[in-house]
Amino acid sequence: MSLIDKIKSLGSINTLSKHEQLVHGIIEAIDMGILVVGDQLPSINQMVSELGFARKTIVKAYEELKHRGLVESKKLKGYFIISQETKVTLKVALLMFSFQRFQEEFYNTFRKELGKRFQIDVFFHHNNLSIFETIFNNIKGKYGMYVVAPIPDAAVRPLLTSIEPQKLLIVDRFLEMPDDYSYISQEFEEATYYKLIELLPRIRKYKKFILFFSDDKDYPPGILTAFQRFVSEHEIASKVEKVYKEGAVKKGNLYFLISDTYLWELLRDCRNNEYVVGQEVGILSHNDHVVKEIVFGGITTISSDFKEMATRAAAHLKNQGTTQEIVPLHLMKRNSL
């Protein structure tokens, strides 16, 4: 049976619209092996001629098949089968910074919330603009939905706005976009500042407040701005260091770390020097983790709830519409400060 015959045979099912006949006909043709990856679908004009369907009906059906990740359109060439995973409702491209612990937490929750009918392909740009551009250009047009943790750089905005608003969700870092685009993002500057205000009595116990921050890493700039504003307004002795060097820990200092690598190195030095964390040395960490609840009596953290972010992102994909939300930062007060 040809593809056209298969579609015509579905016309006898009264519950199916013409658009649904076309979509189901192509899906069944894939399942039967009539269509395989690489095959070209009949042109829109051919479909109109042989089926008698309106042009907009054919376009709508082909676009739904693209949305499911079954079909890809190639400029001036037509529509081609790119997948035989017909059970998938939506094919999703998830573009993240890297597979760090909190991004892993986002991914695991996101996948669990969406379930098996959503295919998720994961890509990592490592905060590298060139890598971001290459990945984005390679995946553009091949997915029904794009969930992107963007590099906070204006250069990525034209890439992102080349995707229709209903097919793009910005997560994690906030990036200024046109009003009709959706986002579920963090805000760092104001949120971090007010969490530091909440910690002010504890911070004043220490002689110096030291933030480890480097411009050449993917640290949120808002954290640095919040720190500088806080220490200036409250006249707190402070310093910004780019890296933590082994053995550099000193009694009386409070350390604010974004990098978990530096955190573990600092804690090892505290142990080796037999310094009491939370009394002789203070520690504040960015991004929470179950390990930080346990080690050294608990590490105080300022963190977003990445599971909640993922749950909201999954709900957006299921419900469609427009979502514009800022996920709050949480302060976990523990014994390290």
Rank of each mutant, 00 (worst) to 15 (best):
Gly78Phe: 02
Tyr79Leu: 08
Phe80His: 09
Ile81Val: 02
Ile81His: 03
Ile81Arg: 02
Ile82Leu: 04
Ile82Trp: 09
Ile82Gln: 04
Ser83His: 00
Ser83Pro: 05
Gln84Phe: 02
Gln84Tyr: 07
Gln84Thr: 10
Gln84Cys: 01
Thr86Gly: 01
Lys87Tyr: 09
Lys87Thr: 04
Lys87Cys: 00
Val88Gln: 00
Val88Ala: 00
Val88Asn: 02
Val88Met: 01
Thr89Gly: 08
Thr89Val: 01
Thr89Ala: 11
Thr89Asp: 10
Leu90Trp: 14
Leu90Arg: 07
Leu90His: 07
Leu90Ala: 02
Lys91His: 01
Ala93Phe: 00
Ala93Gln: 12
Leu94Met: 02
Leu94Cys: 04
Leu95Val: 15
Met96Cys: 07
Phe97Ile: 14
Phe97Val: 14
Phe97Glu: 14
Phe97Asp: 12
Phe97Asn: 14
Ser98Asn: 10
Ser98Phe: 15
Ser98Gln: 04
Ser98Ala: 09
Phe99Gly: 00
Phe99Trp: 13
Phe99Met: 12
Phe99Lys: 12
Phe99Thr: 00
Gln100Arg: 09
Phe102Arg: 08
Gln103Tyr: 15
Glu104Pro: 03
Glu105Phe: 15
Glu105Gly: 04
Glu105Gln: 12
Glu105Ile: 01
Phe106Ser: 13
Phe106Gly: 03
Tyr107Thr: 04
Tyr107His: 08
Asn108Met: 10
Thr109Gly: 06
Phe110Tyr: 09
Phe110Asp: 13
Phe110Val: 13
Arg111Ile: 10
Arg111Phe: 14
Arg111Gln: 13
Lys112Glu: 13
Lys112Asn: 11
Glu113Val: 12
Glu113Phe: 06
Glu113Ile: 12
Glu113Met: 11
Leu114Cys: 04
Leu114Gln: 11
Leu114His: 04
Leu114Ile: 15
Leu114Arg: 09
Leu114Asp: 15
Gly115Gln: 11
Gly115Lys: 02
Gly115Pro: 10
Gly115Leu: 07
Lys116Gly: 13
Lys116Val: 05
Lys116Gln: 08
Arg117Trp: 00
Arg117Pro: 00
Phe118Ala: 08
Phe118Pro: 00
Gln119Cys: 04
Gln119Val: 08
Gln119Glu: 11
Gln119Lys: 05
Ile120Tyr: 05
Asp121Thr: 08
Asp121Asn: 07
Asp121Ala: 05
Asp121Lys: 06
Val122Pro: 10
Val122Ile: 05
Phe123Gly: 12
Phe123Val: 01
Phe123Asn: 12
Phe123Asp: 13
Phe124Trp: 13
Phe124Asp: 05
Phe124Leu: 13
Phe124Gln: 06
His126Ser: 06
His126Asn: 12
His126Asp: 08
Asn127Ala: 08
Asn127Asp: 12
Asn127Tyr: 14
Asn128Glu: 13
Asn128Gly: 05
Asn128Leu: 05
Asn128His: 10
Asn128Gln: 11
Ile131Glu: 14
Ile131Asn: 14
Ile131Lys: 11
Phe132Lys: 05
Glu133Asn: 04
Glu133Thr: 01
Glu133Tyr: 09
Thr134Gln: 03
Thr134Glu: 05
Thr134Ile: 01
Thr134Gly: 01
Ile135His: 15
Ile135Cys: 02
Ile135Thr: 02
Phe136Ile: 02
Phe136Gln: 02
Phe136Asp: 00
Phe136Val: 01
Asn137Pro: 03
Asn137Ser: 04
Asn137Ala: 03
Asn137Trp: 05
Asn138Val: 00
Asn138Phe: 01
Asn138Glu: 07
